[in-house]
Amino acid sequence: MKRIDFRDQIARNKRKSVFLMFSVFVVLVLLGYVISLAFSPEYFFFIMVIAIIFSIGYILISFYNSHKIAIASVGATKAYKDDYKQYHNLVEGLTLASGLPKPKLYVMHSQQINAFASGRNPEHAVVCVTEGALEKLDKNELEGVLAHELGHIASYDMRYMTLVAVMVGMIAIISQIFLRSLWFSGGRGNDKSKAIFMLIGIILAILAPIVVYLVQMSISRKREFVADASAVKFTRYPDGLIRALKKIKADYVPAEKKVSKAVAPLFISNPFGKLSNTHPSIDSRIKMLEKM
C-alpha cells in the first residue's frame, strides 16, 4: 500500500485556509464598497470602516467556531459515552491507530447513513454521525466510516472544508439578502452610476452562490479518495468501508431538509441525494478501495 504522508497535505490545507480567509475578507470589503456606493455614497467612509471591522470579526468568529456552527446547522447533539459505548470505543481505537487526540462526538438525528468531521485542528475536532449510521451499520462498517472522518481530521481537510462551508455559505446568504433588498429600494435616485453599481451588486449576488458551488465542488472530490485511503491506513481493513459505502448506496432515505446545503460537502456522502456532484460517485470510491 502506498504510504500517505500527511505533512504536504496538511501544509496545503493550511495554505488554502489562509487564502480562503483572505479572499473572504476581500469579497466582504468589496461587497461593503458596492453597497455603500449603491445606497448611500455620503456615508462611504463610515460604511467601509464598518465593513472592514465586520469582515475581520466575521472571519475570526467563523475560524474559532466553525465546528460549532457546522454542528448547530445540522442540529446534532452530543453523544455521551454511557449512551453510545460502541461509537466511543471505536473512535478511541482509531485515535490509537492514528495517533490523533480523541475528537468530541456528536449524533445527528437522521435516518440517513452519513457522517462528517469538523474543527479547526485535531485538538478541536468533532465527529458527527447520524442515528441511521449507528443503527444500520455493523461494527466494522461503522469503524470504516469513522476512520474516513479521522482521515479528514488528520489531513486538516476539515479545517479547510468547514471554513469553506461556513464562510462561503454565509456569503451566499448575505448576498441573497442584498439582492432581495434591491427589489424594495429601486425607486430612489436614478443616477446612471447608481444603476451600474446596482448592476454590479446584482451580478455579485448572483455570482456568490455559483462561487459556493464551484468551491464546494473543488473541495470534496479528491479529498474523499484520500480520506478513504487514510481510513484503510488506520483500520487495515478496506472491507469495512467498502461494505459501508455499499450500504449507503443501497439505502434510500429522502434528502435531508434540516441540513443547510452549504455544509453538504462535509459529509461522507451527499445528504441531498446521489445526483449532486459535491462527491465522487460511490462506485468509483469502492473501486479504488478494492484495489488496496
Binding site: K85, Q86, N89, E92, G93, L94, L96, A97, R236
Partner: peptide
C-alpha cells in the same frame, strides 16, 4: 464488550 474493545485498542496501539 469492554474486553473486546480493549483488545481492539491494543491491536491499534501496536499498529501505530
Amino acid at each position: 464488550r469492554e474486553l473486546t474493545a480493549t483488545e481492539d485498542k491494543i491491536a491499534y496501539a501496536r499498529q501505530f
